[in-house]
């Protein structure tokens, strides 16, 4: 398998009891590509992501990350393998500052022989944080402020900045701007563009058609647990209306006709 393929899934399936939340998803993305996943609520978008990131255990199917077959038993393992997820609900500790949150659970430490009482290397973590923020062009007035004192947009930026700080091999964002205002959304979109320029692969789950058409190379549409369209919006002439057609079920690509 080519090194250029970042993520590949084959027949990825998840059943919750009798509910077929995800059925036979075949997916592939190349290095540097930004892919959006769209679909109605309950179409299987989040289920798809949860199988990849090890939050849930799949019923069937295979996943390859950079050509290597993977089967994560938990989100931590996926993260260690280089998949960084920005969740809908922000996983940030409000009373800690920015570097603390970025490095939570994977602190840079010294004197490791002290076990749980090993010391934190604050200086190195602050330095890496500033570099990560610079890379993503995230602006935060004072990184030593606690998260509690930050706006929703700033919080989301902190969550996203984690990906840049840890040189993630694949970033997944689950509706990163759903709860944000106009300006904050623009800020997050700018960060996504920065990631694109840096060649960092990204999977973006979003309901925002304008955002998706603006930002990504390709749209994967889910409907009733199955992929029903794979739209290369950069090279083909596809309008927002077409995409809506796929989402609602008015249209289906011929190669996915069994999904209809």
């Amino acid at each position: 398998m080519s090194e250029e393929i970042v993520l590949k899934t084959e027949d990825l399936t998840k059943h919750y009891g009798g509910v077929h939340a995800l059925e036979g998803a075949n997916f592939e993305m190349k290095k540097g590509e930004h892919v959006a996943i769209m679909g109605d609520n309950g179409a299987g978008k989040s289920t798809f992501v949860r199988q990849i990131t090890g939050v849930e255990q799949r019923t069937r199917g295979k996943v390859w990350l950079y050509g290597e077959e993977v089967s994560f038993i938990g989100p931590l393992e996926a993260r260690e393998a280089g998949i960084e997820t920005v969740f809908q609900t922000l996983a940030l500790a409000d009373d800690l500052d920015v570097p603390d949150n970025l490095f939570l659970g994977r602190e840079i430490t010294k004197w490791d022989w002290l076990g749980p009482f090993r010391f934190l290397d604050y200086k190195a973590m602050r330095q890496a944080t500033l570099e990560g923020l610079e890379k993503t062009a995230v602006k935060i007035p004072n990184i030593r402020n606690t998260i509690r004192n930050m706006s929703g947009g700033q919080r989301q930026c902190v969550a996203i900045a984690r990906t840049a700080t840890f040189h993630s091999r694949l970033t997944i964002m689950d509706e990163p701007t759903a709860a944000l205002g106009v300006q904050e959304t623009a800020q997050v979109e700018n960060i996504i563009r920065t990631l694109k320029e840096a060649g960092e692969p990204l999977i973006l789950i979003s309901h925002n058609m304008r955002q998706v058409m603006d930002l990504v190379d390709r749209i994967i549409v889910f409907r009733r647990g199955r992929i029903c369209a794979n739209l290369d919006i950069k090279s083909e002439d596809i309008s927002g209306e077409d995409v809506v057609g796929y989402i609602t079920g008015a249209k289906t690509q011929p190669e996915y006709s069994d999904a209809a």
Partner: peptide
């Protein structure tokens, strides 16, 4: 203030779910 034990203690009290998701 300066050890992993301390940081995780604060993290758990601040947002237990986030602490768990961070692998603590």
């Amino acid at each position: 203030r300066y050890t992993v034990y301390g940081k995780h203690t604060y993290a758990i009290g601040s947002n237990e779910e986030a602490a768990r998701m961070s692998g603590i």
